[in-house]
Amino acid sequence: MPTWTLHTEFKFDAAHFIDGYDGKCGRMHGHSYKVKMTAKSHKLNPSKYLKSDDMVCDFKELKWAAKDSKKGGFDHGVLNELMPDNTTAERIAEYIHKETKNRIPEGIDLTVTVWETDNSWVEYTDQDV
């Protein structure tokens, strides 16, 4: 079966605090987050910008979180104001995953990796691995 796996990475800067955390992460602070998106599909699809079935999904849709927070993304925003859940790295990855799945065609296996620092990251997928 043919398989295409799309990869893209982007960064955004944002502030947050972890509500209820007993330590310095409970206070407002910021990170330069790095995100890797991996989208795997057994078929090609159209997109909002290309009507023919020639892509797994559009890179623009995968990179929505890199947009300015005033334009629907996370960049230079306060994550506690932009997300319904607590802003741990795990919840950020889960939220980006869920929001991205709403923007891309059905049937794509999506994996989201979020680096909070150079040596601390989390990977999220809704598939059994």
Rank of each mutant, 00 (worst) to 15 (best):
T117I: 00
V114S: 05
F12I: 06
H7Q: 07
T111A: 05
D22P: 08
A39L: 12
D128V: 14
T117N: 00
K43W: 05
K24P: 01
P84V: 08
Q127H: 05
I104Y: 02
H76M: 11
L6H: 03
W115G: 03
K11V: 09
A65P: 01
S32F: 02
K98Y: 09
A89G: 09
L50V: 10
T87V: 15
V112R: 08
K34P: 04
F59V: 07
E116L: 02
P46H: 07
S47K: 05
K60G: 03
D19C: 09
E90S: 11
P2G: 13
V56T: 14
G77M: 10
R27Y: 09
K24T: 00
P84M: 05
G20E: 10
K101D: 04
V122N: 02
A15G: 01
D58R: 01
D85N: 11
R91G: 00
E116K: 01
E106Y: 06
G72W: 00
T125H: 10
N80M: 00
P84Q: 11
H31F: 02
H42Y: 12
A39K: 01
D75Q: 05
D53K: 09
L6G: 02
V78G: 00
H76I: 02
K11M: 07
D118G: 15
G72D: 01
E106I: 02
G26L: 11
Y124G: 08
G73L: 08
G73T: 07
F59Q: 01
T117P: 00
Y21R: 11
L44G: 04
I108Q: 13
H42I: 15
K71A: 12
K70D: 15
T8F: 00
T88L: 07
H76P: 03
S41M: 05
E94F: 15
T5F: 02
E123L: 14
M28L: 15
W115D: 02
K51C: 03
F10Y: 15
N86F: 11
V112Y: 10
P84G: 03
V112M: 04
S47F: 05
D53L: 08
H76W: 13
V122G: 06
I104N: 10
V112E: 13
V122E: 10
D13Y: 09
F74W: 07
N119G: 06
L82C: 08
Y95N: 10
L79P: 04
V56A: 09
Q127T: 15
N119K: 14
P2L: 06
F12T: 10
